[in-house]
């Protein structure tokens, strides 16, 4: 592309290879002046309010920072403590992985499946159905109704139901019993998962060229599952990638629901995730350096997952 063409062009006035590279680069920057102008407003704000705080946090992860005294440089100490000393962190990692492995793929598939099914409906009905599916995401802290359903006394809906049918003899402490906490949190996270990716998939389905389906029918596509696999999915790869990133972030950072349902701290740390661990150190104990180290580790884990998923999605269809 343009890169190679400008680099090959010999430039008589500047003989040294390094400065030739530089003028080549400069030429290219000048050639793309419009692109930089389009990018500039966003880039400036993004760097100031997102990149700068993130970089600061990563630097803070190498310090001992209690927000009262100036940060003290401690090198890798926060990280060694995290992996070698902090037992609770390992519980948090284990829980987070369980949540991520279960809710990540399931919520992704659910978003795709329901977006695809809803897309078949007529426009007005579709907008309304989309609202119903999206309801858990739009109505604030509505997941609190689950605390009523799984309330530990005999009046909680779940207990009441099971007692009436004689399945249990005494109320179950759903949100205190470590056997039930994880499945319940997973259920609620899944219930709330038809969010951003769901809407993006619906929008993405709109962009698919309708003539592709007609061509597909002629080429011997027989049912709607084949249609989905051979036409729909390959046509919306960019949206699928977007949805994957959303699923990764959401499944790795589940904390709000866990705290609201199982309490903070939860019984035997059964609902402890990496992010609740981070909140504990950052907002309760004010060990900002340590909290930043947790955030950095989580960040790297998510980037790694995203790279793997991206590789896999490229080969789709």
């Amino acid at each position: 592309m343009r890169v190679s063409s400008t680099e090959i062009t010999p430039s008589a006035s500047v003989p040294a290879p390094r400065s030739r590279w530089f003028t080549g680069l400069w030429k290219e920057i000048k050639a793309n002046r419009d692109a930089y102008l389009f990018l500039a407003p966003f880039a400036i704000i993004f760097i100031a309010f997102t990149v700068l705080p993130v970089v600061t946090s990563i630097v803070l992860s190498f310090t001992d920072c209690n927000m009262l005294e100036p940060p003290k440089w401690v090198g890798w100490q926060n990280y060694t403590r995290l992996f070698l000393v902090d037992d609770v962190f390992l519980i948090a990692v284990k829980n987070t992985l369980v949540y991520a492995i279960v809710t990540g793929p399931l919520s992704y598939i659910a978003c795709l499946l329901f977006a695809w099914l809803i897309n078949e409906l007529r426009p007005k009905l579709r907008a309304f159905m989309t609202l119903l599916f999206y309801a858990p995401s739009i109505s604030g802290n509505a997941f609190l109704i689950w605390t009523i359903i799984f309330s530990g006394d005999a009046y909680g809906y779940m207990n009441g139901l099971l007692l009436r049918f004689g399945i249990i003899n005494e109320p179950v402490q759903w949100l205190q019993d470590t056997r039930f906490i994880t499945p319940i949190v997973i259920l609620v996270v899944l219930w709330m998962s038809l969010g951003t990716s769901f809407l993006v998939f619906i929008a993405g389905l709109q962009g698919i060229d309708k003539t592709l389906y007609e061509a597909g029918a002629i080429d011997g596509i027989r049912n709607r599952w084949q249609e989905l696999w051979y036409i729909t999915l390959p046509s919306m790869k960019p949206q699928l990638m977007f949805g994957a990133v959303m699923s990764i972030t959401q499944s790795f950072t589940a904390s709000e629901h866990a705290i609201a349902l199982a309490g903070f701290p939860s019984t035997d740390y059964a609902a402890r995730t990496v992010v609740t661990h981070l909140i504990d150190y950052g907002n309760v104990r004010f060990e900002m350096g340590y909290a930043a180290a947790i955030a950095t580790v989580l960040f790297l884990a998510m980037i790694l997952t995203q790279r793997l998923v991206q590789k896999w999605l490229r080969n789709l269809g």
Binding site: V54, T56, S57, V245, V275, A292
Partner: peptide, 24 residues
């Protein structure tokens, strides 16, 4: 457009979605 820094900038934007906002 493909211009110097475009690919890197885009990657940074995607990565930034994955940083826990609680510490920033």
């Amino acid at each position: 457009f493909r211009f110097p820094g475009s690919r890197q900038f885009f990657n940074i934007v995607v990565f930034s979605l994955m940083f826990a906002p609680q510490v920033t």
